[in-house]
């Protein structure tokens, strides 16, 4: 999320501590900067806030509100001068407990949710546990990261209790480039994939791998290289060498420039 530093400087209070920020910044970011932890499940600093999990609820009040508080989600609440936030009031904790209780009902076997629930004193959900347990908490991190890199191969489909993350028609997604971003960002490791030195499979689609000419490691799919070359305006060749080898080559170049290493022989043509 782009932090709107363009806003004017403001002072607010979080858990009794005066904190500097810029108006319009989201409360979650401000709190994190001040070293105050607010639990989140659907937030990722590289993506627009989504407000899907409601775990980051906090209480906010202002001078003159007579102690009246409103409950907001920190990840999408823009701060302004003088607000007073409570990130761990009794009401806030109780609300988070309800959120986690519901999540635990949906995902009774998911370690991340079990751990968070336990932190809030919940060992077992007080609701009827999902008869078909899933590890997906519908945080939409996967679909949002897929959108973010300009692919949008997957999306949430259906609604209500039938809502799920899936490719169109539950078929191998034509737009998928096999980058694994969705699987890697998933907080519950719900998205299965396989990857080896020769091929990769995710969402039922198989990909051929490019090998780094220097170290021989298969590090990127052909479709990935094509996609990023198309978007980044660089040639596909740029992606054939893996990042680690590229870094080494770059370091070598710098050292040569600084005269630490002798100049390399010109590459044989």
């Amino acid at each position: 999320m782009s932090i709107e530093n363009s806003g004017k400087p403001v002072t607010l209070t979080i858990d009794g501590k005066p904190v500097q920020a810029h108006s319009g910044e989201f409360l979650l970011a401000v709190a994190q900067r001040a070293g105050i932890t607010i639990p989140t499940l659907c937030h990722h600093p590289a993506l627009e806030p989504y407000g899907g999990c409601r775990l980051c609820v906090v209480d906010v009040t202002e001078e003159g509100w007579d102690g009246w508080c409103k409950m907001v989600i920190a990840c999408q609440f823009p701060v302004k001068e003088g607000i007073i936030a409570f990130t761990a009031s009794e009401r806030v904790i109780e609300t988070r407990r309800v959120v986690l209780d519901l999540l635990l009902a949906r995902c009774p076997d998911t370690p991340l949710i079990q751990r968070l629930a336990r932190e809030y004193g919940i060992e077992k959900t007080s609701y009827v546990p999902n008869p078909n347990p899933t590890d997906c908490i519908l945080c939409a991190l996967c679909t949002r990261v897929c959108d973010h890199i300009g692919v949008s191969a997957i999306a949430t489909v259906n609604r209500g209790i039938g809502r799920e993350v899936a490719p169109p028609y539950h078929q191998p997604p034509p737009d998928c480039i096999g980058c694994l971003a969705c699987a890697e960002i998933c907080p519950t490791d719900y998205i299965p994939y396989t990857t080896s030195s020769t091929s990769r499979t995710i969402w039922g689609k198989s990909f051929e791998m490019l090998r780094c000419p220097t170290c021989g490691r298969a590090h990127i799919t052909v479709e990935q290289a094509r996609h990023f070359a198309g978007h980044g305006g660089v040639s596909e060749d740029y992606f054939t060498t893996c990042d680690a080898c590229k870094r080494k080559q770059m370091a070598g170049t710098f050292q040569r420039l600084q005269g630490v290493l002798p100049a390399a022989a010109p590459p044989a043509r």
Binding site: S152, A155, T156, V157, Y169
Partner: peptide
């Protein structure tokens, strides 16, 4: 038809499917 709509409107098929199922 959904595939054609996606192509013509330059909307990813996954988005069209998402809206169509919502």
């Amino acid at each position: 038809v959904l595939v054609r709509v996606a192509e013509t409107l330059h909307v990813p098929l996954a988005k069209v499917f998402s809206v169509g199922t919502f």
